[in-house]
Amino acid sequence: MNDTSKFGIIIKAEGNIAKLYLSGYLDAHTASELENALNQIIIDNKYYILVNFKNLDYISSAGLGVFMAFIEEIRDKNGDIKLCEMTSKVFQVFDLLGFPILFDILDTEDEAIQKFKNGDLKKNE
Protein backbone atom coordinates (compact mmCIF):
# COMPACT_ATOMS: atom_id res chain seq x y z
CA MET A 1 0.00 0.00 0.00
CA ASN A 2 1.63 3.27 -1.01
CA ASP A 3 1.02 6.56 0.65
CA THR A 4 -0.92 8.20 -2.14
CA SER A 5 -3.52 5.49 -2.61
CA LYS A 6 -3.79 4.22 0.98
CA PHE A 7 -5.74 1.24 -0.27
CA GLY A 8 -4.65 -2.35 -0.61
CA ILE A 9 -5.98 -5.66 -1.86
CA ILE A 10 -4.58 -9.11 -1.11
CA ILE A 11 -6.06 -11.98 -3.11
CA LYS A 12 -6.02 -15.58 -1.87
CA ALA A 13 -7.66 -18.72 -3.18
CA GLU A 14 -9.42 -21.37 -1.12
CA GLY A 15 -10.63 -24.15 -3.40
CA ASN A 16 -12.91 -22.47 -5.93
CA ILE A 17 -13.37 -19.37 -3.77
CA ALA A 18 -11.39 -16.20 -4.53
CA LYS A 19 -10.87 -14.26 -1.30
CA LEU A 20 -10.13 -10.53 -1.41
CA TYR A 21 -8.78 -8.80 1.69
CA LEU A 22 -9.29 -5.04 1.48
CA SER A 23 -7.45 -2.49 3.58
CA GLY A 24 -7.33 1.27 3.93
CA TYR A 25 -9.62 3.67 2.10
CA LEU A 26 -11.88 2.71 -0.79
CA ASP A 27 -13.04 5.87 -2.55
CA ALA A 28 -13.37 7.23 -6.10
CA HIS A 29 -9.59 7.45 -6.31
CA THR A 30 -8.91 3.84 -5.36
CA ALA A 31 -12.07 2.08 -6.64
CA SER A 32 -10.41 1.28 -9.99
CA GLU A 33 -7.93 -1.01 -8.16
CA LEU A 34 -10.81 -3.12 -6.85
CA GLU A 35 -12.41 -3.06 -10.29
CA ASN A 36 -9.20 -4.35 -11.88
CA ALA A 37 -8.87 -7.10 -9.27
CA LEU A 38 -12.45 -8.29 -9.83
CA ASN A 39 -11.97 -8.17 -13.60
CA GLN A 40 -8.92 -10.40 -13.28
CA ILE A 41 -10.81 -12.88 -11.10
CA ILE A 42 -13.58 -13.11 -13.70
CA ILE A 43 -11.04 -13.56 -16.51
CA ASP A 44 -9.78 -16.53 -14.48
CA ASN A 45 -13.35 -17.89 -14.49
CA LYS A 46 -13.76 -17.65 -10.74
CA TYR A 47 -17.27 -16.70 -9.69
CA TYR A 48 -17.30 -17.49 -5.99
CA ILE A 49 -15.93 -14.27 -4.55
CA LEU A 50 -15.53 -13.49 -0.88
CA VAL A 51 -14.57 -9.97 0.19
CA ASN A 52 -13.15 -9.50 3.68
CA PHE A 53 -13.50 -5.91 4.96
CA LYS A 54 -11.80 -6.39 8.32
CA ASN A 55 -9.01 -3.91 7.59
CA LEU A 56 -11.00 -1.51 5.45
CA ASP A 57 -11.31 1.82 7.25
CA TYR A 58 -13.54 3.69 4.83
CA ILE A 59 -15.82 3.21 1.85
CA SER A 60 -17.70 5.73 -0.29
CA SER A 61 -20.34 5.17 -2.97
CA ALA A 62 -17.59 4.62 -5.56
CA GLY A 63 -16.63 1.43 -3.71
CA LEU A 64 -20.23 0.26 -3.47
CA GLY A 65 -20.60 0.99 -7.18
CA VAL A 66 -17.87 -1.53 -8.00
CA PHE A 67 -19.84 -4.35 -6.37
CA MET A 68 -22.99 -3.21 -8.19
CA ALA A 69 -21.11 -3.26 -11.49
CA PHE A 70 -20.14 -6.93 -11.14
CA ILE A 71 -22.92 -8.66 -9.24
CA GLU A 72 -25.32 -9.24 -12.14
CA GLU A 73 -22.69 -10.89 -14.34
CA ILE A 74 -21.36 -13.02 -11.49
CA ARG A 75 -24.82 -14.31 -10.56
CA ASP A 76 -25.55 -14.97 -14.25
CA LYS A 77 -22.57 -17.33 -14.10
CA ASN A 78 -24.06 -19.04 -11.01
CA GLY A 79 -21.61 -17.34 -8.70
CA ASP A 80 -21.95 -14.78 -5.93
CA ILE A 81 -20.07 -12.04 -4.09
CA LYS A 82 -20.26 -12.46 -0.33
CA LEU A 83 -19.10 -9.68 1.97
CA CYS A 84 -17.83 -10.22 5.50
CA GLU A 85 -16.15 -8.84 8.62
CA MET A 86 -17.12 -5.20 8.09
CA THR A 87 -16.44 -2.63 10.78
CA SER A 88 -19.59 -0.89 11.96
CA LYS A 89 -18.68 2.32 10.11
CA VAL A 90 -18.26 0.51 6.78
CA PHE A 91 -21.40 -1.59 7.33
CA GLN A 92 -23.38 1.58 8.00
CA VAL A 93 -22.64 2.88 4.48
CA PHE A 94 -23.89 -0.37 2.91
CA ASP A 95 -26.90 -0.34 5.21
CA LEU A 96 -27.83 3.31 4.52
CA LEU A 97 -28.31 2.43 0.85
CA GLY A 98 -30.10 -0.85 1.51
CA PHE A 99 -27.32 -3.08 0.17
CA PRO A 100 -28.15 -5.93 2.57
CA ILE A 101 -31.20 -6.54 0.31
CA LEU A 102 -28.94 -7.43 -2.61
CA PHE A 103 -25.81 -8.81 -0.92
CA ASP A 104 -25.10 -11.39 1.74
CA ILE A 105 -23.17 -9.54 4.44
CA LEU A 106 -21.78 -11.95 7.04
CA ASP A 107 -20.12 -11.40 10.39
CA THR A 108 -17.31 -13.89 9.81
CA GLU A 109 -15.34 -15.26 6.90
CA ASP A 110 -16.21 -18.82 8.02
CA GLU A 111 -19.93 -18.10 7.60
CA ALA A 112 -19.31 -16.76 4.09
CA ILE A 113 -17.23 -19.80 3.13
CA GLN A 114 -19.87 -22.14 4.54
CA LYS A 115 -22.54 -20.46 2.43
CA PHE A 116 -20.48 -21.05 -0.71
CA LYS A 117 -19.88 -24.67 0.29
CA ASN A 118 -23.60 -25.19 0.90
CA GLY A 119 -24.41 -23.65 -2.49
CA ASP A 120 -26.35 -20.91 -0.68
CA LEU A 121 -26.12 -18.25 -3.38
CA LYS A 122 -28.33 -15.26 -4.02
CA LYS A 123 -29.82 -15.34 -7.50
CA ASN A 124 -30.79 -12.73 -10.07
CA GLU A 125 -34.58 -12.27 -10.16
Binding site: S60, S61, L64, G65, L96, L97, G98, I101, L102
Partner: peptide, 22 residues
Protein backbone atom coordinates in the same frame (compact mmCIF):
# COMPACT_ATOMS: atom_id res chain seq x y z
CA UNK B 1 -36.01 3.85 -5.06
CA UNK B 2 -33.37 1.35 -3.92
CA UNK B 3 -35.51 -1.75 -4.44
CA UNK B 4 -35.94 -0.73 -8.08
CA UNK B 5 -32.27 0.21 -8.25
CA UNK B 6 -31.21 -3.28 -7.18
CA UNK B 7 -33.84 -5.06 -9.29
CA UNK B 8 -32.59 -3.32 -12.41
CA UNK B 9 -28.89 -3.40 -11.43
CA UNK B 10 -28.62 0.35 -11.99
CA UNK B 11 -25.26 2.09 -11.90
CA UNK B 12 -24.21 5.43 -10.40
CA UNK B 13 -26.22 8.05 -8.57
CA UNK B 14 -25.49 6.63 -5.12
CA UNK B 15 -23.33 9.53 -3.96
CA UNK B 16 -26.16 12.04 -3.85
CA UNK B 17 -28.37 9.45 -2.16
CA UNK B 18 -25.73 8.95 0.55
CA UNK B 19 -25.21 12.70 0.97
CA UNK B 20 -28.94 13.10 1.58
CA UNK B 21 -29.12 10.26 4.05
CA UNK B 22 -26.23 11.35 6.28
Amino acid sequence: NMEEYFREFKKGGLGIQLMRSV
